[in-house]
């Protein structure tokens, strides 16, 4: 699509949308035209929401979760067990775990996993920051994704943390609850079989 048929200001907006993840040229144009059509208050609300997010949201200086206040509400909560740290890749993982209401410890956001192919080494992740937090900790729970990189990062972290005499655990993997054995993929089933538990 030849796009210089649009006025420059509209063109700028399309360019900005186009930079967003998952937004192609066509969608960017559609979004921009949509903004053109909505009433001024709505457009202003969107613009302000974007500005507010950038002004008010930052990373927690303790756990690197996203927050409006530093430290974040989880880190400041006196009812939370500060001796238990759950290590995750991204802030969205915290949201998932929080939704279970099953975890009462605190978190640490690593910011990714070790991957030489992507040029990410331990120094690019918040590992040093994690190590500084371990003085009064009983257990570190590794809740990284079960990818090759996630698993290797877990192994690496356990090699760093275990010698300090701290318990290191990682999430179990197995059969999703409420699912029928017949519909579980064979791989998940064979993994679950391998890590079966006595009852």
């Amino acid at each position: 699509m030849k796009s210089d048929i649009f006025p420059a200001t509209l063109q700028d907006l399309i360019e900005e949308f186009n930079k967003l993840p998952g937004i192609g040229r066509k969608t960017a144009t559609r979004l921009a035209i949509h903004i053109l059509k909505v009433n001024p208050e709505e457009a202003r609300a969107l613009a302000q929401a974007i500005i507010r997010v950038k002004e008010n949201i930052r990373f927690c200086s303790v756990c690197y979760n996203i927050t409006e206040e530093d430290p974040c509400p989880i880190c400041r909560d006196p009812a939370r067990n500060q001796r238990q740290i759950c290590v995750v890749e991204d802030p969205t993982d915290i949201m998932m775990i929080e939704n279970t209401h099953e975890y009462n410890g605190v978190y640490h956001v690593l910011g990714g996993t070790i991957s030489p192919l992507d040029g990410i080494g331990p120094e690019d992740l918040r590992i040093k920051e994690l190590m500084k937090r371990l003085d009064n900790v009983d257990e570190v729970i590794l809740a990284l994704n079960p990818s090759t990189e996630g698993e290797t990062t877990s192994i690496y972290l356990s090699k760093l943390i275990k010698p300090l005499g701290i318990k290191v655990t990682r999430l179990a993997r197995g059969i999703p609850l409420g699912s029928n054995l017949e519909f579980i993929d064979e791989l998940t089933l064979s993994k679950a079989l391998r890590s079966r538990q006595e009852i």
Binding site: I114, G121, P122, T148, E151, T152, I155, Y156, K159, L160
Partner: peptide, 13 residues
């Protein structure tokens, strides 16, 4: 230690 972590991944699979 980092290389050994990849050793473990390699060995495991």
């Amino acid at each position: 230690r980092l290389l050994e972590s990849w050793d473990d991944a390699l060995v495991q699979h």
